[in-house]
Design a binder for these strands. Structure first.
Lengths: 130, 130
DNA sequence: CAATGAACACTATGTTCATTC
DNA sequence: GAATGAACATAGTGTTCATTG
């Protein structure tokens, strides 16, 4: 998860998605496009709609980094429409490392929020506390 | 300033820099590398150090979009070290449009802060109000 | 056909270095 | 030599489309 060390301008999208995916995977075992739907719904009112491929890439990276394992299943009735889907599941190792990831992400989120709030203060007067 | 309409994940760096540059240029007429120094100092404690070329590109775009005009000067003593520098200055048109730009940026900043705060709430509990 | 993911394209950003006075 | 900015390289993200069962 090298994107956490970058310290550039703002947080990278994929780091953000991974934070959500780690939690969603822990909460309920779903397959790829279901997480995509969840995320789209979740961020809809924030004017953000993650591209499917970004979510898949995030899932691949979590897999490659050993956070999660994949489990293929076939969906649908015999004979007519088959559909392969892939379930994701946190590994034991992944659970521990997810905690560390969360801690690092908290710092990064705070940094970014701080930077954006500074811009609001600098250009639109003091930030309201409500 | 088409980067304001994107509505992707987070704000683009250059849009952010332009907001600062428009205000800095209005506040005091400096040349390029002086704005760079100002910005670096300003964001230092936020773990963000804009690359010089990003600032120059932002200044070029502000120029091309008619917000500012450029004025070349020669710095230094005759005979030995000459140094060409470029001062920037808001146009009349630029002042008006900068206000519009600020309004649009406010929305975008709020959207991004909202998205990041949501992540903090979702993963680390309710956001403290201080 | 829906889900997956690879390939491709494009945009944003960072790095290097030539120029110029 | 310091400032400027072009050229280049890379990263990040979005789009399209082939696969496949």
């Amino acid at each position: 998860m090298s994107e956490l060390k970058s310290r550039g301008f703002l947080l990278k999208q994929r780091a953000f998605l991974k934070l959500y995916l780690l939690e969603h995977i822990q909460a309920h075992k779903l397959y790829g496009s279901q997480y995509i739907d969840e995320l789209k719904r979740e961020f809809e009112s924030y004017g953000y709609s993650p591209a499917p491929s970004e979510v898949y890439k995030s899932l691949h990276e979590l897999t490659n980094d050993g956070y999660v394992t994949r489990e293929k299943k076939i969906l649908g009735e015999e004979g007519i429409g088959f559909q392969e889907i892939i379930y994701y599941q946190l590994t034991e190792e992944g659970k521990k490392r997810a905690d560390l990831y969360k801690i690092q992400m908290k710092e990064e989120l705070d940094r970014c929020i701080g930077l954006l709030n500074k811009a609001v203060r600098d250009h639109y007067g003091p930030v309201s506390k409500l």
